[in-house]
Design a binder for these strands. Structure first.
Lengths: 112, 112
DNA sequence: TCACTATAGGTAGCAACCCTACGCATTGGA
DNA sequence: TCCAATGCGTAGGGTTGCTACCTATAGTGA
């Protein structure tokens, strides 16, 4: 997958991954990979800066810990992040509907 | 709609608009707006450079004409553009499936 | 002991691409 | 006469994901 197409959608994916409970960055990356059957295997250089951005924006909150001699930064959703995730899902649905309508060619099972 | 999320998907939309037959840039912009019920109203500063990009890439072919005293640049799909459109549709389907899978939360309206 | 891999975090710089804000020209209506 | 709609265009900027690189620890195997 050309992940460049992710522009503007990555934040929602990261928030969704954290919805089930707190996780550290590396685990988020792996959860995303597993959730998509390996089709979305983001480089760490994408994941970490994005998490920092989300934290700066107040959508997630991070805290340091040490597990097995390795330092970890564990993130969890804030209340604002939860609202933002809901908004991202709404936005995605509308976006997908719009693109599908404009792209045509039977992308949507609905119009068959 | 925040069209900024379009990153990487605009080209396919423009190609799809030209699939029905040759059109000039302004008409493409309006066709896209109409096809999406006004939800995707792109500024001309987005449409024209994108069309130039597609032409440079050999996916569309443009020609000048004058209609009602106004010069128009009419574009039509090339064979390569037609193939690229098919690829864009495939790519969109996979992309949408991946994002929906990762975003969760009742992703697909298909099951209506 | 040494090398390598997996795990875990990070940064700098780049490139793509869409947007904002303009500019020009013509036609037609108020 | 002025303005809106039509129609084309460019310059510059900002967001954002990617490539490429760095640091560090634990564990495995030669």
């Amino acid at each position: 997958m050309r992940a460049e197409a992710l522009k503007g959608h990555l934040d929602g994916l990261l928030l969704a991954t954290l919805e089930g409970g707190p996780q550290h960055g590396y685990a988020v990356k792996e959860a995303l990979r597993d959730a998509t059957g390996g089709r979305l295997d983001l480089p760490t250089g994408t994941v970490y800066p994005a998490l920092h951005r989300l934290e700066r924006a107040g959508l997630i909150k991070g805290s340091w810990s040490v597990v097995g001699g390795r330092r970890r930064r564990t993130y969890e959703l804030t209340e604002q992040g939860r609202r933002s995730l809901a908004g991202a899902r709404d936005h995605w649905q509308e976006f997908a509907a719009v693109i599908s309508a404009a792209l045509g060619g039977g992308p949507w099972p609905a119009t068959n």
